[in-house]
């Protein structure tokens, strides 16, 4: 790759989209005393988990029937038990206002509603929970079609779209796509579909002999894949829940 010229014009930062799986502390009721007790129980059972673990506060289950939430006290409880609140998701206007006042970032709620408080925020979807929130719709990119062999050490990334390889993918080569990946030659390299977190992405290949398969960060390496009866066969790979499903085509 070319060496970057470190001139004045060169940006020293990049804004990058990123998908992180994050734990959501979802509050069913506004009962902080009980939360405190129950958290203490949890900490006793799994102390290693509560070690400055980042969490997202889910306040959407609270209804108008619940009393007004003391967000400051909730944050205190979290901090005491080793949980660091990254932000909150809330639906009640009171909670939203409280979060704003405390400077706690508000994230779009799981149902996709945007936060009604207008405040400029950097487009950093890092804290967006993978399992619930629908990722922002990426603009449709044309499919990247590769007709020559992809050799070891080469990396091909179809940003924001699908990748189709009509030739061989050698061991040590890496295919990445935000969408689906299709390989019509022998597949011996690494394949990562849904590279920025799209769990709906799939992998299709004519001959499964890959070093690694991954969809939205869930992966299987050759050591596991070789034990599959589908090894060497034309297959299609999809993600259901946390499990990579390998199905014969």
């Amino acid at each position: 790759m070319n060496q970057a010229d470190l001139t004045d014009q060169d940006p020293i930062f990049r804004l990058k989209g990123n998908m992180l799986a994050v734990t959501v502390l979802e509050l069913a009721r506004n009962d902080l005393a009980r939360l405190d007790r129950q958290l203490a129980d949890k900490v006793a059972k799994a102390p290693s988990f509560f070690n400055d673990t980042p969490v997202l506060l889910g306040l959407e289950q609270l209804t108008a029937a619940d009393a007004e939430l003391d967000l400051g006290a909730l944050l205190d409880i979290c901090r005491r038990h080793g949980l660091l609140a990254l932000g909150a998701r809330a639906s009640r206007p009171g909670d939203i206002q409280a979060a704003d006042e405390l400077g706690l970032p508000l994230l779009p709620s799981a149902s996709g509603r945007e936060r009604p408080v207008a405040e400029p925020q950097t487009p950093e979807p890092a804290e967006e929970p993978v399992e619930e929130a629908a990722p922002a719709e990426p603009p449709l990119q044309p499919t990247l079609v590769i007709t020559r062999p992809v050799r070891g050490g080469q990396q091909i990334y179809a940003r924001g779209g699908d990748l189709v390889v009509l030739s061989t993918v050698s061991p040590g080569a890496e295919l990445l796509a935000d969408g689906n990946i299709h390989v019509y030659g022998p597949l011996r390299g690494r394949v990562l579909a849904g590279a920025s977190g799209n769990a709906e992405a799939r992998i299709f290949c004519q001959q499964l002999t890959a070093e690694l398969l991954s969809i939205a960060g869930r992966y299987k390496v050759a050591e596991d894949l070789r034990r599959s009866p589908q090894w060497g066969k034309p297959v299609h790979v999809s993600l259901s829940g946390d499990v990579l499903n390998i199905t014969r085509l």
């Binding site: 020559r148 062999p149 070891g152 061991p171």
Partner: peptide
């Protein structure tokens, strides 16, 4: 064979 494959990649790029 692996190294040759790598070289073929460099030849192509």
């Amino acid at each position: 064979v692996r190294d040759s494959d790598r070289i073929l990649g460099l030849l192509a790029s």
